[in-house]
Amino acid sequence: MTNMMHDKGLSSQIGWQNRDASGNVLSTRQRMTMHRLRTWDERFRTRNSKERNLKQALGEIDRMSSSLGLPEPIRETASVIYRRALASDLLPGRSIEAIATAALHAAARQAGIPRTVDEVAAVSRVDEMEFKRAYRYIVRELHLEIAPPDPEQYVSRFASELSLSEETEIRARELLRIAEENELQSGKSPVGLAAAALYAAALLTDEKLTQDDVSVVADVSSVTIRNHYRELLEADSKSPSMDNERLQRY
């Protein structure tokens, strides 16, 4: 069974190949008959409005997951969250697409593989404001346990997209740890901090990287990076030099 299908994969489905068991092409009359059978089969598999709602939502979750490169376990979790929202009657007054988007965002956050709000909004069929309202709503109503976003969760992906060295990625993580120790993360965007940490780390490791490069990948402004990276470097300058023991943590 799978939660990623509205019927959990338990029903049968008539194929669309228009060939018989021997692989021969069906005649025109046979194809017309099969078309009618498929139509009735599809109607039977979604017998009521809730099932049609669920089928549409799970299709949206699958589409967005593919666009965002999210793995199957996250799709499964998002499907479960959506089913809970539907069972709890949270849909009235909200679109299927908004709740589906919110469920996927919540699932990614829970799994520690978050995507930025801008990234999710870019693949959603609803605007960012509607998606964010739906997200806050289902988190509150379903009592979803979601930890505050951690800037380090974005570092690996951004570093990979920027083709940065492992040394720079490690240094960026160290800068973020120092920032946390000095309470510099409070009130700041985790995405902006991750971007700034990578830029600052590249400066420290003499790796060629511009603020514009990071800005494009992280989808944050160069001003944000410029403001944050200076704070990170200042905090780092007051911290003991990185030694082998600290390196091994990463």
Rank of each mutant, 00 (worst) to 15 (best):
Arg230Ile: 11
Arg157Asp: 12
Ser237Trp: 04
Ala159Leu: 06
Thr33Asp: 14
Asn227His: 15
Val216His: 08
Arg36Leu: 13
Leu10Asp: 02
Gln30Ile: 13
Ala98Lys: 00
Pro148Trp: 00
Pro240Lys: 12
Gly187Cys: 05
Val216Ile: 15
Pro92Leu: 04
Arg249Val: 13
Val120Gln: 01
Met34Trp: 15
Arg52Val: 09
Ser189Ala: 11
Asn3Pro: 00
Asp243Gly: 14
Pro73Met: 06
Ile96Asp: 06
Arg43Met: 10
Tyr154Phe: 14
Ser239Cys: 05
Leu232Glu: 15
Ser221Phe: 09
Ala78Asn: 04
Gln211Asn: 08
Val126Ala: 02
Lys208Gln: 11
Met32His: 15
Leu193His: 12
Phe131Ala: 13
Glu72Gly: 01
Ala194Glu: 12
Arg75Tyr: 10
Ala98Gly: 00
Ser189His: 09
Met1Glu: 15
Ala108Gly: 11
Glu128Ala: 07
Leu193Asn: 07
Val155Cys: 04
Thr205Phe: 02
Glu245Arg: 07
Gln13Gly: 11
Thr168Tyr: 11
Glu234Lys: 13
Arg94Lys: 08
Asn48Met: 04
Ala200Tyr: 06
Asp127Ile: 07
Ser12Cys: 12
His6Ile: 09
Leu104Ser: 03
Ile99Leu: 12
Ser65Asn: 07
Ala108Ile: 03
His143Ala: 11
Glu183Tyr: 11
Val223Ala: 10
Lys55Gly: 00
Glu174Asn: 14
Ser215Glu: 08
Ala102Leu: 02
Lys208Pro: 02
Leu86Asp: 14
Asp127Ala: 03
Val80Tyr: 06
Leu86Gln: 12
Ser221Gly: 12
Gln211Met: 11
Asp41Gln: 12
Asp212Trp: 13
Phe131Ser: 10
Arg63Met: 10
Glu97Lys: 10
Pro151Met: 02
Thr210Arg: 15
Asp20Asn: 15
Phe158Ser: 09
Ser237Ile: 05
Glu180Val: 00
Gln56Arg: 14
Leu184Ile: 13
Lys188Ile: 02
Ala235Cys: 03
Thr101Ser: 15
Ala194Thr: 07
Val80Cys: 10
Ser237Arg: 11
Ala195Gly: 08
Ser165His: 13
Ser241Trp: 04
Tyr154Gly: 03
Leu68Lys: 06
Ala200Gly: 05
Thr224Trp: 08
Asn53Cys: 09
Tyr135Asp: 08
Glu234Gln: 12
Thr205Ala: 01
Glu166Gly: 14
Ser49Gly: 13
Met4Gly: 05
Ile99Gln: 02
Gly23Trp: 06
Val25Lys: 14
Leu26Cys: 03
Val139Phe: 00
Ala200Ile: 04
Asp236Pro: 02
Arg173Tyr: 09
Asp213Arg: 01
Glu152Cys: 10
Met4Arg: 10
Pro73Lys: 05
Arg45Met: 06
Leu91Tyr: 09
Arg45Val: 00
Gly69Ala: 12
